[in-house]
């Protein structure tokens, strides 16, 4: 059984919502890079947008941008976070500072999970953690409260995916865009009262138990809210 401390999901949700500290310069740099990348065309983004044209604009935008960022080596490891923070920020009319903070919490959750969880070999770790970082960013930028953020984390966790065999394929890039869109949807659902569970990461039938052979709670939680791990890769 994974050695996951109880209450992990609640602690992460609290961090996502309460984050007040000064964010590292890298979050600002990522926002600028994401905006610049939007100007360049990515064929996969156009294909996604055309095929899914019956969907709503925010979900299409999250899909297309997430997949395009995933194809950009400078942004690939935080592609879903950036897509979710940008689209969520536009949806909410968020101030730039809030969007930057959303990028910071999303990147932080992603990098900590990535380092803490020993995923089974069939999974591609970067794709699997994408939805967690993206839902953290969406919850922050849409100003969910703590309880809502925890439920959103549950709705997102149950959708974590990323087959190793698809890594590097067009389906793999599309999966990252889908993680951004799924995360945004999870945050909006939770904001309207949808429930997803209190222990989606650490629970007996939750993310770590199903997809990993272990989870280092210290790597996940130590210094959370005090030091930024994503700033020093």
């Amino acid at each position: 059984m994974p050695d996951v401390a109880t209450g992990v999901s609640a602690i992460l949700a609290a961090f996502v919502v309460r984050q007040q500290a000064e964010v590292p310069p890298r979050a600002h740099a990522l926002l600028a890079a994401a905006r610049a990348a939007r100007e360049r065309s990515a064929p996969i983004a156009a294909e996604l947008a055309e095929a899914l044209a019956s969907s709503g604009v925010p979900l299409i935008a999250a899909r297309a941008r997430g997949a395009a960022f995933a194809a950009d080596p400078a942004l690939a490891d935080v592609a879903a976070v950036l897509a979710s923070a940008l689209v969520g920020g536009e949806l909410a009319g968020a101030a730039e500072a809030r969007t930057v903070a959303a990028i910071a919490v999303g990147c932080e959750i992603g990098v900590r999970l990535r380092r803490a969880v020993r995923l089974d070999p069939a999974w591609d770790p970067e794709t699997v953690v994408a939805v967690f970082g993206a839902v953290a960013a969406a919850a922050h930028v849409l100003t969910l409260d703590e309880a809502q953020a925890r439920e959103a984390l549950g709705v997102a966790a149950t959708q974590a995916t990323g087959l190793r065999l698809a890594r590097g394929t067009t389906a793999g890039a599309a999966a990252v865009g889908k993680a951004a869109s799924d995360a945004l949807e999870a945050a909006v659902l939770a904001r309207h009262g949808f429930t997803g569970g209190a222990a989606s990461i650490e629970g007996r039938r939750g993310f770590a138990a199903l997809m990993a052979s272990g989870c280092n709670a210290a790597a996940l939680l130590d210094g959370l809210g005090e030091e930024w791990r994503f700033a020093d890769p």
Binding site: G154, T158, T161, G172, G197, L210
Partner: peptide
């Protein structure tokens, strides 16, 4: 590539 569903969500 799009499977979903953890039983942890039972009860929600």
């Amino acid at each position: 590539t799009m499977a979903l569903g953890h039983r942890e969500a039972f009860g929600t």
